[in-house]
Simulated assay, not measured.
Amino acid sequence: MSTDATCLSAIDKLVIESEVRRLLAAYVHNLDYGKVDANAELLAAAKFNIAGTIVEGRNSIAQFLRNNLQYHVDDTPRTWHSVSNVLIDVASATAASSFCYFTVHQELPGLPLQPIVTGRYIRHLRASRRGMALRIARNRAPPVRRHQQARSRPGRNRGGVRQR
């Protein structure tokens, strides 16, 4: 496998894109299942930047996740992350970036599963020195939108379609 993206075969690029998608999926699944240590391992080599708060190192990232996510009796945040519009830029065999949108849904006692926050994940990945496997080097989630219950406006029905 060549190191320059212009020299990579289509198969090489697909393999790298698949690896990036797998890291993204592992991250959100770990969040939803409350697997703090697994995400700290995924992000161990990363500069973790969430809405301007920067954390680095496995232990600091694990502590940040424990302190800033609400966990329930079942040791999960009772969330469901949806990731969409994933764009992956393969720079070389040892570097790639990904950009995507996310929506976090949450279900609490007495409430249905509903969207609570949306935003973007921006990831820069590099191959580790120990091998060719890509690791997250920088993980950023810029400030996000928090959802509030929809309000109806005059001239619109609850579905958001203008009434005639």
Score class of each variant (00 low, 15 high):
residue 161 V to I: 14
residue 87 L to A: 14
residue 11 I to R: 09
residue 52 G to A: 09
residue 27 Y to W: 00
residue 87 L to C: 12
residue 20 V to H: 00
residue 164 R to F: 11
residue 20 V to Y: 00
residue 107 E to F: 00
residue 23 L to T: 10
residue 120 R to S: 13
residue 149 Q to I: 10
residue 20 V to W: 00
residue 17 E to G: 04
residue 71 Y to N: 07
residue 56 E to I: 06
residue 119 G to R: 08
residue 36 V to K: 05
residue 63 Q to V: 11
residue 12 D to V: 05
residue 29 H to K: 10
residue 57 G to I: 04
residue 117 V to R: 12
residue 25 A to R: 01
residue 60 S to N: 15
residue 75 D to L: 14
residue 82 S to V: 13
residue 78 R to S: 15
residue 85 N to R: 14
residue 148 Q to T: 15
residue 98 S to A: 15
residue 73 V to Q: 04
residue 123 R to I: 04
residue 57 G to Q: 01
residue 5 A to G: 04
residue 164 R to I: 08
residue 103 T to H: 11
residue 132 M to C: 04
residue 83 V to H: 05
residue 11 I to F: 09
residue 53 T to L: 08
residue 156 R to E: 03
residue 16 I to S: 02
residue 92 S to I: 06
residue 115 P to C: 03
residue 138 R to W: 03
residue 24 L to F: 04
residue 101 Y to Q: 01
residue 146 R to N: 11
residue 18 S to P: 03
residue 105 H to T: 10
residue 156 R to K: 13
residue 123 R to F: 11
residue 139 N to S: 13
residue 105 H to L: 12
residue 104 V to P: 06
residue 58 R to T: 06
residue 150 A to L: 15
residue 141 A to W: 02
residue 15 V to H: 05
residue 68 N to I: 08
residue 60 S to A: 15
residue 14 L to E: 06
residue 47 K to D: 01
residue 138 R to D: 07
residue 6 T to C: 09
residue 78 R to C: 15
residue 120 R to G: 07
residue 77 P to N: 15
residue 120 R to A: 12
residue 97 S to H: 02
residue 36 V to H: 05
residue 161 V to K: 07
residue 61 I to V: 09
residue 144 V to L: 11
residue 70 Q to A: 12
residue 36 V to Q: 02
residue 35 K to I: 02
residue 134 L to K: 01
residue 123 R to D: 14
residue 88 I to H: 11
residue 137 A to Q: 03
residue 124 H to Q: 11
residue 50 I to K: 12
residue 68 N to P: 10
residue 110 G to W: 07
residue 26 A to I: 06
residue 129 R to I: 06
residue 89 D to T: 15
residue 99 F to Q: 08
residue 115 P to F: 02
residue 66 R to G: 09
residue 100 C to T: 05
residue 124 H to F: 11
residue 68 N to T: 12
residue 111 L to M: 10
residue 111 L to P: 02
residue 76 T to W: 11
residue 4 D to Y: 01
residue 41 E to F: 08
residue 63 Q to R: 11
residue 61 I to G: 03
residue 103 T to Q: 07
residue 117 V to M: 13
residue 161 V to M: 12
residue 48 F to D: 00
residue 80 W to C: 14
residue 12 D to R: 03
residue 127 A to V: 01
residue 154 P to L: 10
residue 126 R to K: 15
residue 7 C to I: 11
residue 97 S to I: 03
residue 91 A to M: 00
residue 133 A to Q: 08
residue 51 A to R: 13
residue 28 V to H: 03
residue 41 E to R: 09
residue 55 V to N: 02
residue 72 H to W: 13
residue 150 A to Y: 13
residue 6 T to L: 08
residue 128 S to T: 12
